[in-house]
Structures are given as C-alpha cells and as structure tokens.
Design a protein around this nucleic acid. Structure first.
Lengths: 353, 353
DNA sequence: CTGAAAGCGCTTACAG
DNA sequence: CTGAAAGCGCTTACAG
C-alpha cells in the first residue's frame, strides 16, 4: 500500500544491480543475463514495482498516445468512428486521449493545445469549424501529425484527411429520385444558409459535410435538367424537433415536394416523424431518403432508403494513416486526402412518382 | 519548424532570467514582477515555446488525466455515459484516456495497467467480467482511485460504484405487465443461463446487469403470484439476429407469451422486428417492453414502452465521484455505492390483456 | 521578487 | 553482460 511506490532505484538496490541493468531487465531493451533478469524481476514483483511511463516518455520522446478530438462522442457517427480508431491503434500499442468539443472552436483549440503539451504522438480531429485551422497548423509545426476526419479544414493543407465523398453521396441519392420520376425534390439541411455559396464555389475545404451534401443535391438537379427552387431547401438545426418543423414547412407548400432528402440521420428521424404525424402515406404520397444505416431505419414501415456512410472505416483509416505518419515522420510524404464512397441503399421509402 | 522545440531553459536564456523565474511566469505559480513576466511571455511567444506536460507531471505528481475503460464505445449506452463523464471532468481541467476492451478481460487488465503506468489520476471502468477484480484492486493499492460504472465487481469492495437499480427496473416493467392482466410473460435475455443462480442468491456484486434484470423479472412474477416458467426465458446473444431468433422461439411455443420483456435495447430491436415479420399485431396480440429511450422507439408503430436508464447521468455522476476521490484522496472516505433509478415509460406497445 | 540546486524516474551512449 | 554518469524538462524548497 505504498502510495508513492517503488522506483527503479529501489528495485535495483533490492536486486543488487545498477539502475541501468534493472531498467534493461524490466524494459526489455539492451542485454541482460538470464540470472540477473530473474533477480530483477523477482525484486520488482516483491516491491510491487510499477514503471513510470512519464519518465520513460520524457527520454524516449514517445508517449504511445494519440489524441482524438470530436464534436460529440454521444453521436453514433463519432462513436462508431472512434471505435474504428481504437480498433486499429490499440493493437499497435497506442491509447486514445479523448476530447469532446461540443462543436465549440475554443474548446477544440484548448484540447489540441493541451494534447500537444501532453506530448501525444499525433492527433485525429473532427473540426468544429472547417474554416479555422490555425491551431491545427501550429500543432503540425510543433511536430504533431494531424489527421482530419469527416471535414476538410482550410488553412492546414499539410494535414492528411479522411472524408466521405459527400458531393457524390447526395448526388446519387437525388439521382435515384429523379430516375424514379420525381421532379419536385425537397431537402432538409443544416446548411440551408449556404445555398448561394455552394452553387458558385466548388471547393470542399472549409465546408461542413452538410454544405457539401447540399451542393451534391444542387448538382444532381442540374444534371437532371431540373430547376433549383430555393423554396424546396428547408433549413434545420441539428435536432429532431427542428427537422420536424422543416418537414412540415415543406409539406405546407402550395406545391409540396413529392420526395425529400435529409442530409443526416437526425434530421431524417424528425422528418419521418412529421410525415407520420400528418398521416401522410409513405412512400405513395411522399418518398424520403436519409443518411446512415441506423437501426431504426429498418424497424419503421416503410423502411427508410438511406445513404450509408463507411463510418467505422473512416475511423479505422484515420487511425492507420496517423500511425503511418507517426512512424514515417511528418515531413516525409505529401499529405493524403482520402475520400471514401458512400453507398445508396434503396428501401421501401422511395418509389416511382 | 523546430521539431524538438524550445524548452524552459531556452526561454529563460532569451529573457535573461533563471529557469525558475521563467517557469513561474509561464506556469502561473509563485511570484513574478509584471516586467519580468512580460519579458518571459514575449520570449516564449517568440520561440514558440510549448510547455512539456510530462516533465510537469513528473514533479507535480498529477497528470490531469483520467482513464475510462469501456467494453464498447460504439454502443450508445457507453457513448452517452462517456459524454456525461467528459462534460463533468473537462471543465475541471481533466482529459480522458480511453480504452475499449471489447469485453475481453485481458484487454481490460492491460488497459488498466498501462493507464496506471501513464499515471492517470484515477480511472472509471465498466468491467468486462463482474467476477474479476484483482487488477482493479491492484490499481487501488497503487493509489489510483477506481470508480465502477454499470457493473459492480466482486473483489474490489473499496471501489466506488455507480449503477442502475436493475433489479427494480426490470421488476417495475414486469409489474406493469401483470397489472395489465398478463399472466404469461416472456423475457429475452443474455443471462438465460443464470436463471438458477439468480433465483437463489441476492447479491448484485459479480453479476452482469442482464442477470440482475433477470432476477427482477423473476421476483416480480413471484410478487404477483405467477409461476416462473423456464420455457418463457429465451436466451440471446447481444445482437439483433440472436434476439430475432429468441422471439421466434417464444412465439412458436404451444402456449406463447402475451407479453415479452427484452433486457436491453439491442435485443428489443431484434424482437420487435421478429414480431413485425410474423405479421403479429402489436399491441393487441403481443405487448412488448424494451430498455433505453433510443430514437427508434418512438418512430415505430406502435411506439415502444421502455425502461429509461439515466445513462448520461450515470457517466456524469461517475465523473464527479472520481473527481472527489482525486481531491480527497483514496483512503479518506468509505466507498460509495450509488444506485440510480430507471423509469418506466409506458407507450403504445403495452395494453391490457 | 529572483536564482542556484536538487530531484521527479527513467533511458542512453560510453566504457569496461 | 554490467555500471557510472548524463540528461529529458520541468517545479520546489531554500536562500537571499
């Protein structure tokens, strides 16, 4: 019950060797004879020796720890990606230092800074604000590899990124609807205020996934020769209630849409509910598409057509990418920007118009 | 782009002061004159100084880091609890070192050991095996406070614990059904093999939550004067498919149950689906109760009656409890065993028989 | 308010 | 194979 605990010096003394030898026996580096190793191990066991990782990291320069910064761990998307990260990095002997920013830039800046001070070997971040990358660049300049997930960030071109091809994902969903004959297609999105911006530019960097998806929606309409009607773009905050209201606004239109795309899974659940509560018959009176293959999407009737994101894989790849950087060194290769494909899963909620 | 970066020595030299003074100016401890503080801060900024948390922790004896060990971060239950933990500990200046064990004891042992070596200030663990606590006791003996969540563990009576009163929760659910007049009530559970054990003992320590819930089921039946029919206890693994099969087995019985309790939310989703696929009309032909207020439970028709666990609160309380221990020291108070109440939320899936 | 020195607990050349 | 010594980068008494 020694709270302070025995140090290497104590073990060495008890075993009658130098601390260097004791360290070699315990740490598994250098050469030690079988006899001394046994003596040291016995002494360590006797004293309840617990190596001090801080001291070791100070001299080796590696903490075997990576930082992971997300906006919300409770969000199934990030929880699943996080699992992908730990599944890859844990076998490699790394642990994860986790920070939850709640989407607040200042919290993210603080987290990255503290992690950097704690000398993590690298960091994976789902940025709170795609437009703000100065703190990430600072970390990279200090020698901490950064891998971006889910969102590209402007101002940090040197950072690797693993994202989903949201442009394509949304376009495929809308294409599915136009092929079914729908001509008035609504969208419920968090990025409604960026419609104008999205129609002109074509950068992904600096945009939220929702904005990129909105662009995919627009380009798919244009590809099908359909007009882009701003009245069919319904803005919602990232919660069910807000999506519920947005859906009702669309359905209250003089000429309501025959099909609606929701740019994420939370919005989809609110929209689905709104349609149910109005007594609207899906899919005959309304076709609906959401994002993410959440359990509920196959429990409801009709089952929801969705765009399935490779969420777990996103995390796993980010973990692997960071591990590579940690091994190879930051400056060795050019930044990698990996885009993963999402997959349209057609189910009962979408039918020909 | 200095990978090694400037140390306190460099800053001190540049500012023309001792490292002690530079440290005081930067670290915000001790006394420094305004003039020197400014000089030091300027020098630090110029050199891009980044304090070394490892060195600081070595001397202060605190890392401002807590360990969190769960079986599966991707599980909404743990993801939500984790959010509760970070929301409480982050404002206090602590970060979370996370490990995912996949429910494998050896992984948990390794994680706790490594965290202890990294000198976390304390650890919160959702144990993989309620019967195995030796490694946790070892951590406590080394001075690392341990707070158990969701599961009590035998062999670590000194550790605090925050759990849900699963006994009561399940009993309340079954009581709801017996009051509605149901007399043949089935249960789908992961702990089916522990029916005998559960009927005799009454310890909670060393039991999985599912086993405790099974006991609640049993005692509620007995309280209502109903027989406990082992044929109505359907075993399932922790996945939808397995629960799907279990539900079908129950419904294939010569005398099938009129109501079924699922001891967690994953099992409930599989069971719900099975009932749907058989074309069974809920709730008239079958009443169903699940656990956890997942989004899908109000999207399906009928909406699912559930037992709502205070998941976020579980994490938040655990975080607070650990913070207390870190401040007060391990030995100062007797272990706290907090049991939170779950709440029955009656919805459309349960009706009188 | 400021500085010189010791110390936290390891690992790493460097000799032998 | 083993040891003496230096060093990683801080903070903390102790003097002044």
């Amino acid at each position: 019950m020694t709270t302070h605990g025995a140090s290497l010096i104590d073990v060495a003394r008890a075993a009658g060797v130098s601390t260097a030898t004791a360290g070699r026996a315990l740490g598994g580096y250098g050469q030690v004879s079988e006899r001394t190793r046994e003596r040291v191990l016995a002494a360590a066991a006797e004293l309840g020796y617990r190596p001090n990782g801080l001291a070791r990291s100070m001299v080796t320069g590696s903490t075997q720890t990576i930082g992971v910064v997300v906006t919300d761990v409770a969000n199934p998307f990030f929880a699943t990606a996080l699992r992908g990260i730990t599944d890859v990095t844990s076998p490699a002997g790394f642990e994860v230092l986790l920070a939850n920013t709640g989407g607040v830039l200042e919290a993210e800046q603080r987290a990255v800074s503290v992690m950097s001070e704690k000398r993590v070997d690298g960091v994976i971040v789902a940025a709170a604000r795609p437009g703000e990358g100065a703190h990430l660049r600072r970390a990279m300049d200090a020698g901490v590899p950064v891998v971006l997930i889910d969102r590209q960030v402007s101002g940090v071109p040197e950072a690797d990124s693993i994202t989903v091809d949201n442009d394509h994902a949304a376009a495929e969903a809308v294409g599915h609807l136009t092929e079914l004959g729908h001509r008035r297609i609504g969208v419920i999105t968090e990025a409604g205020d960026q419609l104008a911006r999205v129609r002109t530019g074509n950068r992904r960097r600096g945009l939220f996934p929702s904005a990129v998806r909105l662009r995919g929606y627009v380009s798919a309409l244009e590809a099908a020769g359909l007009p882009v009607d701003a009245g069919l773009v319904a803005s919602a905050r990232y919660d069910r209630e807000s999506a519920y209201d947005a859906m009702n606004r669309l359905l209250d239109l003089p000429e309501p849409p025959t099909a609606v795309l929701c740019t994420d899974n939370v919005l989809a659940s609110g929209a689905y509910r709104a349609a149910q509560d109005r007594g609207l018959r899906m899919p005959t009176q309304l076709s609906l598409i959401g994002f993410d293959d959440e359990p509920w999407t196959t429990l409801v009737r009709p089952e929801l057509t969705i765009v399935e994101q490779p969420t777990y894989d996103l995390g796993a790849r980010a973990g692997r990418q960071l591990l590579d950087r940690i091994t190879d060194g930051t400056a060795s290769r050019r930044p990698q920007h990996i885009q993963l494909r999402a997959k349209l899963v057609a189910r009962g909620s979408t039918v020909p118009q």
